[in-house]
Computed example of a mutant assay.
Amino acid sequence: MVIGESLPKILFDCLPIIKLKPGEMDKFLHEKIYVCPVYKTSARRGTLSTTGHSTNYVLSIELPSDKPQKHWINRGVACLCQLDD
């Protein structure tokens, strides 16, 4: 029930469907998580907006983790949106 290492030579892997449920921030536990960015595409061509994020950036989601955030940041872990056509 936590984010785990990918298998060797696997660059992209599926993440289970995540249901986004709005709520009050102070009621959520913010422990043992990785704040994972979600992007529209894997292309690194978005321009930097006034918010400091790429225009390719959608939002961040908190994934349960048994490792510190720095571990996943060093690996460049991010999520990509699946666009339904």
Rank of each mutant, 00 (worst) to 15 (best):
F28P: 00
C14M: 13
K21R: 13
E31P: 00
I33H: 01
V35W: 15
I10A: 11
K27F: 09
E31T: 14
K40H: 13
G23Q: 02
P8I: 03
L20N: 04
L11P: 05
D26G: 07
K32R: 10
L7M: 09
D13I: 09
V38M: 01
K27I: 04
P37F: 02
V38T: 01
D13W: 07
P37Y: 00
K27L: 10
K27T: 10
D13P: 02
I10N: 06
L15H: 14
K19M: 14
V35A: 11
L11W: 11
L29I: 12
H30V: 06
Y39W: 05
Y39F: 14
I18V: 12
K27H: 04
F28W: 11
F12Y: 12
P8G: 04
K9T: 06
E24S: 09
V38H: 01
M25A: 13
P22M: 02
L29C: 10
L7N: 15
V38G: 02
Y39T: 02
C14T: 15
K27R: 09
L11Y: 13
I33N: 02
I17Y: 11
L15R: 07
K27V: 03
I10C: 14
E24F: 07
P22G: 07
F12I: 10
F28K: 05
H30K: 09
P16N: 07
V35K: 14
I33M: 07
E24Y: 09
P8E: 04
L20G: 05
K32N: 15
Y34W: 04
Y39C: 00
L11H: 08
I17M: 15
K19F: 11
C36M: 00
K40E: 07
P22N: 05
L11K: 09
